[in-house]
Design a protein around this nucleic acid. Structure first.
Lengths: 95, 95
DNA sequence: AATATATTGTTTATTTTATAAACTAGTTTA
DNA sequence: TAAACTAGTTTATAAAATAAACAATATATT
């Protein structure tokens, strides 16, 4: 009836990040930070968790002399998101 | 863009409980426990939080000599659930 | 009748998670 | 060259979820 919800995605910030990345396919740290209204520290931690889970890829480089962190969703991330949404439906549509 | 999700409802077990109560309007502790697969301790704690938030009403009595805890959703609980679902949509339907 | 087991929970302790505060490392501006 | 800014990371704290232990009574067993 109520399936276990993926704990990696059942987090407001991580869900927002994945949702965002699914729509844009690639985004910079600062862009994600602005869109999600997260603090840098929180975002840094949550991005790392998503990376550890294999849901996103993180590329670090430099742009205009400044460090640049670019994130990208993975196939695994998309699948996990789809499953999360589908599992969540039982909770949202009580019969 | 991403609205703050009600922390009372953004919990797997509490969301399941509220979802359940919206569909049945009244349920016993043991029934909720069975449907949600929760442990007694966890359910007891989460029911109390929902009660403190004013999202459910809890009536304690006795049935066949055993304690009986019956839960009922409140108007406030229904409204909070509706808002939660609506707020969550931005996360689930990335554009 | 006494002991063991079951029912229906609650309380407390532990673990996990989320978040905020503090810090790092380098860059630009005044 | 000092102050302020950029782009983050790491560590500490607060909050939440969960599990383990307990309580109170009821029923079943020997």
């Amino acid at each position: 009836m109520f399936k276990e919800l993926d704990p990696i995605l059942h987090s407001q910030l991580r869900l927002a990040v994945v949702s965002l990345l699914i729509s844009v396919e690639e985004a910079e740290f600062t862009y994600i930070k602005e869109k999600t209204q997260a603090t840098s520290g929180n975002l840094s931690v949550q991005l790392d968790k998503l990376k550890q889970a294999g849901y996103i890829e993180v590329q670090k480089s430099f742009k205009n002399n400044y460090p640049l962190t670019v994130c990208k969703i993975t196939k695994q991330g998309i699948d996990a998101f789809d499953k999360y949404v589908s599992d969540l439906k039982a909770y949202l549509n009580p019969k």
